[in-house]
Amino acid sequence: MNTTALLARLRPLIGVVVLLAIWTIMHATRAVDPVLLPSPAEAATAFWTGITEGTLADDFFKTVVRTLWSFAIAVLVAVPLGIVFGASQKFYESIEFAIDFFRSTPASAMFPLFLVIFGVGELTKIAVAAFGAALVILFNVAYGVMGARKQRQLAARVMGAPRWRVLTDVTLLESMPQVFVGMRSGVSLALVIIIVAEMFIGSTDGLGQRVMNAQMIFDMPDMYVAIIAAGALGYAMNLVFILAERRFVHWGGK
């Protein structure tokens, strides 16, 4: 590999380096109170001890598990429903407003309601996150199924495929790119809701609770670490879905 190609590969890292530089300068010049803004080195140390001696890995894992549970439930409920809704325009029109309304309602506003129903515990967090993610996924799947181009469906019909087979063999695959958009937005939303829930709904673990805890005991390095860990988690999840889509929807964009 020649030097230009190597530099081109490293280009995305420039932003990270610049950010770290600004952080270091801000800390060194005391532009921000060092108590509020520890140095990158302090944060790195906090990260290392958090993993080796503390509960950072455990908190990270808990948040991942909760997010994946709520996402899995959301997919299981929303994908089939989205197909059914999207397959019939009349049906979709009749429920469009209701879905759009709930989708526009911040899921966090539903916490108290879900607390009453499911009590203070694991179930509430997962239920609210699943609810929020399901609406996003449902909407995207229905939209994808409705907007799928018609010619392949006609081709399948004329080949003798019954209606439901057209739906599963053609329409669903045709709308796969939109389904993936829905799943990606869904998992991001689920993560947001889980983090918030961990902050405010009697949690003893999870990244959200870690951020909140660090703030209360004024352990700023650990707080930054938890925030960055949450960011890394969100980024990784998005990346996994992009890679999965590229693999699964191999015909996309061709």
Partner: peptide
């Protein structure tokens, strides 16, 4: 909904 939607 896409404008051109029509059912099979």
């Amino acid at each position: 909904m896409p404008d051109a939607y029509y059912s099979v």
